[in-house]
Design a protein around this nucleic acid. Structure first.
Lengths: 222, 222
DNA sequence: CGGATCTTCGTGACATGGTCACTGATAGGG
DNA sequence: CCCTATCAGTGACCATGTCACGAAGATCCG
């Protein structure tokens, strides 16, 4: 297991700190690794540290009693995972969980160090508040989508964002359903429809966006 | 217009501060009043202060393009309204708005004073983080309800919480629909059903909970 | 009092989305 | 090559949202 080097360089909130403090942080924090698919945090695994994600992607999702699931947002490299701290601070129950979507490298900052930094360093404080704020706004977006959005529009949008630059999405209908908080059958139906309209083609476990432009248009029609 | 006296006594985050600092805060902050029904903040009214609610209730809701609405949470006396600061800090667009549900008395702390307090005072910092965390968790609850909850269950729960100690809720079907993010017709239908099952009685603009116990049971069946 | 008007509520027909119970299709491992 | 697990497709049905009305209080004013 190799070292991660100077991770303080990677974060908006630590990059601008004085060298001496950064060196202290390097000593205080511990490096964590998670394998793809591993649970990073969840109702039964409340962390007592602040997580900084150095490499990889964490998918934060909420699961219903009945087993349905909805993706709330993703934590990417260079961001911190504030939901964990939220719980830590509020000491309330919640039922969201973070799953390693890729292999992860993260830095865990003990609560004491977190408190210290927030107290002493304006830059770090801004970073933390901005992170909280971003998540709040992400959640507003989710509420809006779920409460008022049409499923075809949402699926089109999600396909585009999962495809990134390419035009291929490697996922199952089940996974797409979990992205949107709907049922697999619904995804199947909508994708059938997309196929008939020549927007996508499918094979088992893979969807090809054959007309991204029209998909964009559909996704944009809010 | 009378003065509010020493409002620093009212908040978890300021009560324990040293007397000298509290006196300074009393000087720095300004007292705001809003009449019932007035818009406290919204997409077109982004505040640049941190609001502490001294008296009254703010209803925070999100509105869709089509005009449907959903209540996200309520800010009560003794709490601060962090969504406003969230936007202030993230400088991102959002479409939630805060409406004065009663006449309000609030204290507006300028950003500079906020920064100072967060930097210097651990107590205040904890208060702010706890407030953020509570809202994050409130939103998780909303997502869960909207994505996975049944409308009759949600309505039963909301009726009980709106009734408080009493057994009468003075609202229109339209307003209840806005609470839950659904359509008026749906509320009408569900209430008809409740009525047939002798759970409630209705007159124009008012619903009486005739069997709170069974309503609780219904609401509790997640 | 008796309309004119506004708000609230009720209702039926239909569209969309979620659930259930299956069947069929495909990939990979012995 | 067959077995099995996973993935996808389908039809029936229920729950919820939308649309287009009309009816039943409330309010105002002559």
């Amino acid at each position: 297991m190799q070292s991660v080097g100077d991770w303080t360089e990677l974060f908006q909130g630590t990059r601008q700190l004085p060298r001496a403090l950064r060196d202290r942080l390097l000593g205080l924090a511990s490096v964590l690794r998670f394998a793809k698919g591993q649970l990073v945090f969840g109702p039964d695994k409340v962390p007592d540290t602040l997580l900084f994600l150095v490499d990889g992607v964490i998918r934060v999702a909420q699961t219903s009693e009945s087993g349905r699931e909805i993706v709330l947002y993703r934590v990417e490299a260079g961001q911190s995972c504030v939901l964990t701290t939220a719980c830590m601070l509020a000491e309330e129950a919640y039922n969201a969980e973070g799953l390693a979507e890729t292999d992860l490298v993260a830095v865990a900052l003990p609560r004491s160090a977190f408190d210290l930094l927030v107290a002493e360093e304006a830059v770090f404080r801004r970073f933390v508040f901005a992170a909280y704020s971003r998540r709040l706004i992400d959640l507003l977006r989710v509420v809006d989508d779920v409460a008022f959005g049409r499923i075809d529009v949402r699926l089109a949008g999600r396909l585009l964002s999962l495809a990134g630059e390419g035009a291929v999405v490697k996922t199952t209908h089940q996974q797409l359903a979990a992205e949107l908080g709907t049922a697999r059958e619904v995804v199947t139906r909508v994708l059938q429809d997309f196929q008939k309209r020549d927007l996508v083609t499918q094979t088992r476990g893979q969807i090809t966006l054959s007309d991204p432009t029209r998909l964009e248009a559909l996704a944009g029609s809010a």
